[in-house]
């Protein structure tokens, strides 16, 4: 673990994180929340609740969605280019939605330029009738959530979501 100082002067840590073939992946671990952030989380819980959303954890600052999906909940990865690198180096390949299985990865893409905005892990097969499926994802600096893939703050990107699996 390495101690680093971020742009605002706060101390964070980073860990050694590598792809399958040993390429370093830049990352950082945030360690704390400010009191106002914690207060705001309560507001967000009131905004996002109900059918299709179950909070798995309290807010955790250490990892973000990509850190949950690709780094075992140990750190934050915020550079989308590194996600493309991981997909390539770790030999992920795309899976048709009809073939998706629990354990596959879901990536939400920003439609204009195709940038990755969010990721999660699929935990159910698509519903036979609706095609909806359950995923687990970390919502930014907030909590880890068990939710329908089309429900939540990334729902606007559902139509451009893609699914991936390591096959070899």
């Amino acid at each position: 673990m390495t101690l680093i100082t971020n742009q605002r002067g706060y101390q964070e840590t980073k860990i050694v994180l590598q792809t399958r073939s040993g390429v370093d992946i830049d990352n950082y671990q945030s360690s704390d929340y400010s009191p106002s952030e914690l207060a705001y989380f309560e507001f967000l819980k009131g905004k996002y609740f109900g059918a299709g959303i179950k909070y798995r954890t309290n807010p955790i600052p250490v990892y973000n969605c990509h850190g949950m999906t690709f780094a075992s909940r140990r750190t934050c990865i915020t550079d989308p280019a590194l996600i493309y690198l991981i997909l390539e180096e770790d030999k992920y390949s795309e899976v048709n939605k009809s073939d998706v299985l629990p354990g596959d990865i879901i990536l939400y893409f920003e439609p204009d330029k195709g940038e990755i905005v969010h990721s999660g892990v699929v935990v159910s097969e698509p519903d036979i009738n609706t095609g909806a499926l359950w995923i687990v994802s970390k919502w930014g600096r907030f909590s880890e959530v068990y939710h329908w893939s089309h429900v939540g703050p990334y729902s606007e990107y559902t139509s451009s979501a893609k699914y991936f699996r390591i096959r070899k």
């Binding site: 989380f41 990509h66 915020t78 905005v117 990721s119 919502w139 907030f142």
Partner: peptide, 10 residues
């Protein structure tokens, strides 16, 4: 928007 941003583009 800031809290839910996993990446800057969001």
């Amino acid at each position: 928007a800031y809290m839910f941003a996993d990446v800057p583009i969001y």
